[in-house]
Design a protein around this nucleic acid. Structure first.
Length: 918
RNA sequence: GGACGUUUAGCUCAGUUGGUUAGAGCACCUCGCUUACACCGAGGGUGUCGGGGGUUCGAGUCCCUCAACGUCCA
């Protein structure tokens, strides 16, 4: 076997293994009755999207879960795919068209859709390829797209079913209108933002009392031509006599409008009088309905004012119109005051412009299974991590509103409704909608299509992705379901997503699943997933959200090129504790890369230390252990290995990925590399100890690679083969016979019992002794450094201590010499003079050519004694406290007493040394 | 206005049910290329645990309150 390179070079390794995994079909989710299923459905990224840091975190974690599941012997399935992302994708393609000075209307619906599809063909795969570079082990043969024929069929089928059940209806209601995308939006797609503008105080002259006015405040004077009334509170004494009278509209076509009384008016706001513009405000619309007032729509769908606004305003954009309206009011003297004002304005999530409340015909969905959806989470059939998000989820369900599912777009699932030609769509009644001679609803459409017109609107994208967990498994086609393993893989195990789409996606998937999967079964069988892990949101170093416009989002592919996919994965996971937003720091990614390099070199050291023996199975490695040769370090490292395994088990059970990574980092770097490998170096020089020592390294490295593999799959796969854990490799250099995921990762308890089976019992006394030896080494290294001796300078130590202490030193002499950089360690009955330090293993003097200054020594010892005295005083005080002694648990009490004794002994020894200095 | 989260070393953050002298990574300083790794090793911390109050033998941890910042919902 060729010696591996001095530093880890990820590029070739990553390319090689991803190709090998794909060639071996290693990611295929295969039904296996002997195994437990573990299923994840990817949150489908936008088909035209590119990989962001958010995707990296999210998908790295899914890959961690899936790879760990494979190692645990489960039948893992990770289904990938993309979302057609209606508005986002249509906007991108329209932007391209605009470069040719064209709009989608120039092309027409069919031609435009062709264009989007070809755009999708061209750019659609990019993000999935990028996920592969990250190492994502999805079953790519199952890649889905929300507009695939089969998927579309299930989306439209659900529409038809819910229509038939009466959950879907058509209605003219106030919606959030995006004047840029020219479509309605759901409430969830509207972002409230504080926005600076002006508050205009406008007076309306009373018709019956010329020269007298009523004043109102508004931020939107351009809508005054749409005013149909002035409303006041019925109990407001200021206006009691005016109710029923009329005012003149101060802008737009001349009109007299009534003063009405309505409970909804806030007496405290402004003058207590409210202008009522039913076409442009939700509250006004409701008041208008109550008073049977007309709605005058002065805006077009693109946000420009129309003829109803009057000749001065018609044709102006709403913002220009606002300015103009203010000027006109000022000229006519109707504007009383204009002052800067900040209020919350709803913005379109996609186009980032203020939305317009607009009265339009739309399709609405009354959500099914709302109560069951609450119960599923409250009763624990679905668990949220962190748990607190369940409160947000439940609160939303408590206040749930009907969902506007129609969009005035072309890219999406066109609503499967046909209207008989000649009918006026806008005047259809509820009864007409249920009359099959007037309105046809089906997948195939009416047989005589020429006599019908299909609905122009498409469905909200989320009204397709809410079926994702089961439509991706072939639902509702029974043959496809059987082929996909629906019965086996569903319900899925874990969903990994961001809390920002709890309403958009998570809650809706739950309701859809409860309505459509495993009807008649208990809730636990119908839920779409059992666990939901919410990642944090990745922010930049200053805590800002990462966004294209700020340019503060690093390109993950650059990071992969620089640090390797494993380094990126390790780094990002290490900085992402459960439930917290993440401040991105590139140095953590670098640290991930460094860790990979450390792992690489530790394995390289193993390779250089001696010939590789048979590592092909744990039994083979255990057979090479000679337990009679075990020293304290051997016991300690195996103890730590089991403890780390146990900790990682716990982290997976509780979805604490960054904690798992930290545990592995600390164990491998500190316990194994900094200590065990270093002490190994003396043993490896002794022929009879070498075999056992290398076998222990092989055992520990094997377990480390297994535990790390889900996080850093490429390098661990490479090293797994390099160190022979995969068994004999093909001689012709062909495809490997086995992968790391073909073996079984035992849990800590299973590992411990396997060890016992092979005659391995951990001596915990010995393992604890190593902790004390480490402390001693630490103290003496510091003594050297303080006295200006370089770490690698070989120095002499003289030890004065009890027989028991010296026995320990003698038993560990070789390793102590190596770890301390000591040319000799000898026992003495006196303190020879010079820098000296009290340890658990006696008082150690550093022998130097030039003796240290006694004054410096005295100062050092005095300081040490003072620190000890302070600590002793504190402990004594606690032990002297009667209530502490009577109430504290015995273990705590005993610990305090033991500690006090040790501190006192140490202090006494230091005092003796001080006295010896004279 | 309501809900949730955060506030611990210069920076970014851990700190599991209350229990020794509160930790890590990075940055910084000193020394060192010692037969894996300089992407490394050894050593180096003086922190009002946001402020105030309370419960307790004992509080970074539990309770109350205030403040700042952030997010979501109205």
């Amino acid at each position: 076997m060729a010696e591996i390179t001095k530093s880890y070079e990820p590029q070739e390794v990553e390319k090689k293994w991803y190709a090998a995994w794909m060639a071996a079909n290693a990611f295929a989710g295969k039904e296996d009755p002997a195994k437990q299923p573990y299923t994840i459905m990817i949150p489908p990224p936008n088909v035209t999207g590119v990989l962001t840091m958010g995707h990296v975190l999210n998908n790295a974690l899914q890959d961690v879960l899936i790879r760990r599941a494979r190692l645990e012997g489960k039948a893992a399935l990770w289904v990938p795919g993309t979302d057609h992302a209606g508005i986002a994708t249509q906007t991108v393609v329209e932007r391209e068209l605009r470069k040719e000075k064209k709009t989608r209307h120039d092309l027409g619906r069919d031609k435009f859709l062709e264009k989007v599809w070809s755009w999708r063909e061209e750019k659609g795969g990019i993000i999935l390829k990028q996920l592969q570079a990250l190492g994502a082990s999805c079953d790519w043969s199952r890649t889905q797209f929300t507009m695939d024929p089969a998927y579309s069929k299930s989306v439209l089928g659900v529409f038809i079913d819910l229509y038939k059940k009466g959950n879907i209806y058509r209605g003219k209601r106030m919606v959030n209108w995006c004047p840029v995308s020219h479509t309605a939006l759901s409430d969830e797609e509207v972002i409230m933002k504080p926005t600076k503008g002006f508050m205009y105080q406008v007076r309306y002259e009373l018709v019956e009392q010329p020269g007298h006015y009523i004043e109102v405040k508004t931020t939107r004077p351009e809508t005054i031509p749409g005013d149909v009334a002035i409303a006041v509170h019925p109990d407001d004494p200021r206006y009691a006599t005016l109710i029923g009278k009329k005012v003149r509209r101060p802008l737009g076509p001349v009109a007299e409008i009534p003063i009405i009384a309505d409970q909804a008016v806030d007496k405290e706001f402004g003058s207590g009088a409210l202008k009522i513009t039913p076409a442009h405000d939700k509250v006004d619309y409701e008041i208008g309905q109550r008073h049977k007032l007309p709605a005058i729509d002065v805006l077009n769908h693109d946000g420009k004012l129309n003829d109803l606004a009057g000749p001065e305003l018609a044709g102006l954009d709403r913002f220009a119109g606002r300015k103009k309206a203010a000027e006109l009011l000022k000229e006519s003297g109707a504007l009383v005051k204009e002052e800067p004002y900040e209020n919350n304005v709803g913005y379109s999530e996609r186009a980032d412009v203020p939305i317009e409340p607009r009265l339009t015909w739309q399709w609405w969905l009354k959500y099914p299974r709302v109560e069951d959806a609450k119960a599923a989470v409250m009763e624990g059939h679905i668990k949220f991590y962190p748990e607190r998000w369940s409160k947000v989820y439940l609160h939303w369900l408590e206040n749930i509103q009907d969902w506007c599912i129609s969009r005035q777009l072309w890219w999406g699932h066109r609503i499967p409704v046909w209207y008989r030609k000649g009918l006026e769509k806008e005047s259809l009644t509820e009864a007409d909608l249920r009359d099959p001679t007037k309105v046809h609803v089906s997948l195939e459409g009416p047989p005589d299509k020429d006599n019908w017109l299909q609905e122009d609107d498409v469905l909200d994208t989320w009204a397709s992705s809410w079926l994702w967990p089961f439509a991706t498994l072939g639902w509702p086609d029974e043959i496809a379901m059987a082929k996909a393993g629906y019965g086996y893989f569903y319900p899925t195990t874990t969903l990994v997503t961001g809390p920002d789409i709890i309403f958009f996606w998570v809650a809706r998937m739950i309701m859809a699943a409860l309505e459509y999967t495993h009807p008649g079964q208990p809730l636990s069988q119908c839920v779409p997933f059992k666990n939901v892990y919410f990642t944090g949101i990745i922010r930049d170093g200053q805590g800002r959200k990462m966004s294209k416009s700020l340019g503060n989002s690093p390109d993950p592919l650059d990071l992969i090129a620089k640090y390797g996919a494993d380094g990126l994965r390790f780094g990002i996971i290490s900085m992402a504790p459960q439930g917290q937003d993440i401040r991105f720091q590139e140095d953590r990614i670098e640290s991930g890369k460094n860790f990979c390099n450390k792992l690489w070199n530790a394995c390289r050291f193993r390779q250089m230390s001696g010939p590789m023996s048979d590592n092909s199975s744990p039994a083979k490695i255990y057979a090479r252990l000679t337990s009679e040769q075990f020293d304290a370090d051997d016991h300690a490292i195996i103890d730590r290995m089991l403890a780390t395994t146990r900790e990682v088990d716990r982290c997976f059970a509780e979805f604490e990925f960054s904690a798992a990574v930290h545990a592995l980092y600390g164990f491998f770097w500190n316990d194994f590399c900094d200590w065990y490998v270093e002490v190994s170096k003396t043993k490896l020089q002794t022929l009879e100890l070498k075999g056992n020592c290398l076998a222990i390294q092989d055992l520990v490295l094997r377990q480390t690679l297994l535990l790390l593999h889900p996080f850093i799959p490429f390098i661990t796969e490479e090293l797994w083969h390099e160190l022979g854990y995969a068994g004999p490799e093909p001689v012709d250099g062909g495809a490997p016979r086995a992968f790391i995921e073909d073996v079984r990762l035992d849990h800590a308890s299973q590992m411990a019992s396997t060890g016992m089976l092979h005659g391995l019992t951990i001596n915990y006394e010995a393992a604890a002794e190593i902790q004390r030896i480490k402390q001693t080494v630490s103290l003496l290294r510091a003594l050297k450094a303080e006295n200006g001796e370089a770490a690698n300078k070989q120095v002499e130590f003289v030890v004065e201590g009890a027989d028991r202490q010296w026995a320990t030193v003698e038993a560990n002499l070789a390793k102590l010499k190596r770890m301390l950089g000591a040319s000799s360690i000898t026992r003495s009955t006196t303190i020879p003079g010079g820098p000296v330090c009290v340890t658990a293993h006696g008082s150690w003097t550093l022998i130097r050519q030039l003796k240290g200054d006694p004054a410096v020594e005295r100062a050092r010892l005095t300081k040490e004694i003072e620190a000890l005295a302070k600590h002793i005083a504190g402990t004594e005080a606690r032990l002297a406290n009667v209530t502490f002694v009577s109430k504290a648990p015995p273990a705590v009490l005993e610990g305090a007493r033991k500690q006090l004794a040790e501190l006192q002994a140490k202090k006494t020894e230091n005092e003796r040394l001080l006295a010896g200095l004279g």
